[in-house]
């Protein structure tokens, strides 16, 4: 009898150990996958291309070389998708996809597809080519490794992803997502790249009662991102409604809005990030400026900001039809370009 018990315990522990190892191995998988994809991509390139696509990890100038503006206005460095052959391009997109979650990749594809729509519109006006998927650039800072930090940059017009990988940790701050057109038709379906950002925030705002609303509302028009490109390392004084003054349900909604940005990166890093955000939720502020809602199926025309101890999110519609042109910014002032991991 004793022997049976002992054996059972041994088997159970062995089983448990196997499970833990499997889980442990899986937890590493995202950064392992990213590193492997990065190396695979680099291998498809010749020496010259490899030279242009890699930078030192502490290359400050390259870190900041991103914008919402088209590449003709703010030239990007690295390799453009248009300059790659089919294999290289597939490897590049495989790397991007390893860095992102499924929903993140979908968002990025929808943003780039929107630029294709812009290209079509611009082309009909005889404008020089500067829009479209070909003009998205990829670059790598540092050496892709499963243990030491490195940064993947991918972006172009209305997109700037700065993804730092450091072992099993990762961050995508600062990153810019934007959409123009904010709504377009693709394969017969209506696409809004920033649908979640718009709809979820509107739902949260509309769930506020009059008191909360009066606190959340900024009494002025906010014409642009406050902490857009070029404003790294800055923090502004928070304003609006504090999450501690929200109901449980509203706080859950707020977290859901934040996931639209925090969830762009691959799931493991996203989960860790959301835990961090949740920990600081009581000190997180939500501010809104503009009309309360939008026609269903279209984007809001309002500016909003979510600011916490390690989080700044801005959603800033622009221009004459603000529902069709949106700039959004995602920052963690305590962790620009993975500063916490690279200690630089």
């Amino acid at each position: 009898m004793k022997k049976a018990v002992a054996t059972t315990i041994r088997l159970a522990s062995l089983f448990g150990l196997v499970c833990l190892t499997a889980i442990g191995a899986n937890a590493q998988t995202s950064s392992v996958r990213m590193t492997r994809a990065a190396n695979a991509f680099l291998e498809t390139l010749d020496a010259g291309q490899r030279q242009s696509v890699t930078f030192a990890i502490d290359d400050e100038q390259q870190r900041k070389r991103w914008s919402n503006l088209p590449v003709r206005s703010v030239p990007r460095a690295g390799l453009s998708l248009g300059a790659l052959n089919t294999t290289q391009r597939a490897a590049a997109m495989a790397l991007v996809s390893a860095a992102l979650s499924a929903k993140g990749l979908q968002k990025v594809n929808e943003i780039m597809e929107g630029d294709e729509v812009l290209k079509t519109g611009a082309a009909s006006r005889g404008n020089p080519a500067m829009f479209g998927k070909d003009f998205y650039y990829i670059s790598i800072l540092g050496t892709p490794s499963e243990s030491s930090p490195w940064i993947l940059q991918f972006g172009g017009h209305h997109l700037a992803l700065n993804i730092t990988v450091a072992g099993d940790k990762g961050t995508l701050t600062p990153s810019l997502t934007a959409a123009q057109p904010g709504l377009y038709t693709f394969n017969g379906k209506q696409v809004r790249p920033l649908a979640g950002e718009s709809d979820k925030a509107a739902a949260l705002f509309n769930s506020l009662d009059a008191q909360q609303r009066s606190q959340a509302i900024l009494g002025s028009r906010v014409a642009d991102l406050v902490l857009g490109p070029g404003e790294d390392g800055r923090t502004i004084q928070p304003e609006g409604l504090k999450a501690s003054a929200m109901t449980e349900r509203q706080r859950a909604q707020l977290l859901d809005v934040i996931t639209e940005w925090a969830g762009i990166i691959h799931d493991d890093a996203a989960a860790a990030r959301m835990a961090e955000v949740r920990a600081g939720l009581a000190e997180t502020w939500f501010a809104w400026s503009g009309p309360a809602s939008a026609t269903p199926g279209t984007n809001i025309a309002s500016y909003y900001r979510i600011q916490g101890p390690n989080l700044v999110i801005e959603y800033a519609p622009q221009g004459n039809d603000p529902t069709m042109h949106i700039h959004a910014m995602y920052r963690d002032p305590t962790n620009d370009y993975g500063r916490k991991y690279t200690a630089k």
Binding site: P70, G121, N127, Q180, D224, Q318, N320
Partner: peptide, 11 residues
């Protein structure tokens, strides 16, 4: 001519 310039709010 140069601009559909998504860049800035035009006006």
């Amino acid at each position: 001519l140069a601009a559909p310039a998504s860049a800035h709010a035009l006006d």
